[in-house]
């Protein structure tokens, strides 16, 4: 595995190029172009805010902000896994014709989603400032949260991208899983303290501490719980190695399967 990591580092320029191509290509040809990176989450925010403030009253103060700081990281996570899982299939031409460490493809995809999220954080910061809450000192730990989430997303994208090559349904199964997963994560609503079973399940979910941490830092302006984050980190690292290991085993026959 160390050999693979070394090789991936040698191919860093390829990752950089793929990320650039992806970011630039994503909205190419559309009128607003790169602005869509910002328009998309803004509209999602608007819809959820309207729904949860006026239709279903969540009872949460400044719900739009409460939601926004969690929603953006969630979108990163889910799109990384969804798009990442098809990243090998999508680059069939490359995979069947030329050698490069195959890990590069999901890495590049997740990285481009990640950069997309970081760009959207500009809007988050502006929203936080506009809301009057101000930016708390705990913002210094934000990069750590980003990294944990990145590792978790990458590990899962690796695993599922390799499986999808052999088993196409995986892509659709992931779509369903992710739709359910958002409700096991305190993105749209708070953890129901009065329902211990639901709470236990939600806290088992490694994404919950991550989402809560974002909210602690950006909404409540406090330092997040290190303990819970360690749990997520542990989970992320394990998944990362499982993902890489499985990918390493499965990649041998990619060219034949595609």
């Amino acid at each position: 595995m160390i050999k693979t990591f070394k090789e991936i580092i040698n191919y860093r320029e390829m990752i950089v190029n793929l990320v650039k191509k992806d970011l630039r290509g994503r909205y190419k040809g559309s009128v607003f172009g790169f602005l869509w990176t910002f328009i998309n989450p803004l509209f999602q925010l608007l819809i959820y805010t309207l729904a949860f403030t006026y239709i279903l009253d969540s009872g949460i103060d400044q719900y739009y902000l409460w939601l926004f700081v969690a929603l953006i990281p969630w979108i990163f996570f889910s799109s990384s896994i969804l798009g990442g899982s098809t990243s090998i299939r999508a680059s069939k031409d490359l995979v069947t014709k030329i050698y490069f460490p195959r890990e590069v493809l999901p890495i590049a995809y997740v990285t481009s989603c990640f950069i997309n999220m970081l760009l959207t954080f500009i809007i988050i910061f502006i929203t936080v400032l506009v809301s009057g809450r101000g930016i708390h000192l705990s913002v210094v730990v934000l990069p750590i949260i980003w990294i944990i989430e990145y590792i978790l997303a990458l590990g899962m994208a690796m695993l599922f991208s390799a499986i999808t090559v052999y088993f196409r349904d995986m892509e659709h199964i992931m779509g369903i899983i992710l739709q359910g997963w958002i409700y096991l994560t305190p993105v749209l609503f708070q953890i129901p303290e009065e329902k211990p079973a639901a709470k236990a399940i939600m806290m088992f979910n490694p994404m919950s501490p991550i989402i809560l941490a974002y909210r602690d830092i950006l909404y409540d302006g406090v330092f997040p719980s290190a303990e819970r984050l360690l749990y997520s980190l542990g989970f992320a690292v394990i998944f990362f190695f499982i993902g890489f290991y499985a990918f390493g085993r499965l990649k041998r026959h990619f060219a034949e399967e595609l």
Binding site: E13, M14, N17, L94
Partner: peptide, 15 residues
Amino acid sequence: IYTNASIFGLSKKEI
């Protein structure tokens, strides 16, 4: 050239 060469594992400097 940059994209293609990077697929061969060349770094930016090498390209």
